[in-house]
């Protein structure tokens, strides 16, 4: 595999590339803490992090999760469209940067593997944090196992089909 393709995959999989060119001070991270807190509250109150709701979703027994994800996506699409259309700047005055994702086979194989895990644990990565916060302390083990899973992926990355 050429180095270029490898680099492309690498950056594609760095989901949260830091798009801000500005140097930020530590206290500027507080705003992310606040957004995270609000987000965690919504997770719990809408029962999105409930194992039972996830089972209902995958067994087609409730509209709830489809409604949540669907309306979230529609809200996201409209917001992004508005940001692009009116060239809305960040609070620091920067232009908002969007990154195109480059397809690789991991988007299929990896996503299927994640789906299998999601239906077992009833949680994608975000809900794991909220579940622990909500008092299910044993989920710390699930989270550490997920970190280990990520590490194992990193270790075998070059040997996996992409």
């Amino acid at each position: 595999m050429s180095k270029n393709i490898d680099k492309q995959i690498h950056s594609e999989q760095a989901m949260c590339v830091n798009q801000s060119e500005l140097q930020s001070k530590w206290y500027q991270n507080i705003k992310y803490l606040i957004v995270g807190i609000l987000f965690g509250i919504v997770f719990v109150k809408a029962e999105i992090i409930s194992w039972f709701r996830i089972q209902e979703m995958f067994r087609f027994q409730s509209f709830h999760m489809y409604g949540v994800i669907g309306s979230a996506v529609i809200t996201g699409i409209i917001s992004v469209w508005l940001i692009k259309k009116f060239n809305i700047k960040t609070i620091a005055g920067e232009t908002v940067v969007f990154h195109d994702k480059v397809f690789n086979k991991g988007n299929v194989y990896g996503a299927i593997i994640f789906g299998l895990g999601w239906a077992i644990t009833g949680a994608c990565p975000g809900p794991l944090f909220a579940q622990i916060g909500s008092g299910a302390t044993v989920i710390v083990v699930t989270l550490l196992s997920a970190v280990f899973g990520t590490w194992v992926y990193g270790y075998f990355k070059d040997k996996l089909p992409h």
Binding site: Q13, K101, G110, P125, L128, V141, T142, S145, A146, G149
Partner: peptide, 18 residues
């Protein structure tokens, strides 16, 4: 708890996101 978590961590990274 353990295998499930592993699949979530391995799968999300291999798949490029959650």
């Amino acid at each position: 708890m353990i295998v499930g978590g592993f699949l979530v961590g391995f799968g999300t990274r291999y798949g490029g996101g959650c």
